[in-house]
């Protein structure tokens, strides 16, 4: 069977859902951050696949991935800083304990 766009889309969907699943079940902020990265990668795969398989005149899709990576890098930096901050203030990285905003 020839590998087509559908294959790429399906594995990216699988990766996305695994990341989502991880976000929903994990309680550690680091794990959640990692799962977010997984989801971003799933999206990037989609972009690359569309750029390759759809009739595109240039590499705009790949440029999008570059931007996405830049944003992801920023997100990781800020996310880690936030985690440090939370850890310093609450002495924990378990998000179940971070419920001081609960109504």
């Amino acid at each position: 069977m020839i590998i087509g766009i559908t294959h790429f889309l399906i594995i990216s969907a699988a990766l996305f859902c695994i990341g989502l699943y991880g976000i929903l079940i994990k309680r550690n902020l680091f794990s959640i951050l990692m799962c977010i990265e997984l989801m971003l990668n799933a999206v990037n795969i989609n972009l690359a696949a569309f750029n390759y398989f759809l009739p595109m005149p240039d590499l705009s899709g790949q440029v999008m991935i570059l931007f996405s990576v830049a944003v992801a890098a920023a997100e990781v930096a800020v996310g880690l800083a936030l985690i440090f901050r939370v850890y310093r203030d609450f002495r924990t990285v378990n998000i179940d304990k971070l419920n001081s905003m609960k109504g």
Partner: peptide, 17 residues
């Protein structure tokens, strides 16, 4: 309604999902 507002982000994410 307040019971729904657990303050757990993941619950909100699940609702969003």
């Amino acid at each position: 309604l307040g019971k729904i507002q657990t303050g757990q982000t993941q619950r909100y994410a699940a609702a969003f999902l």
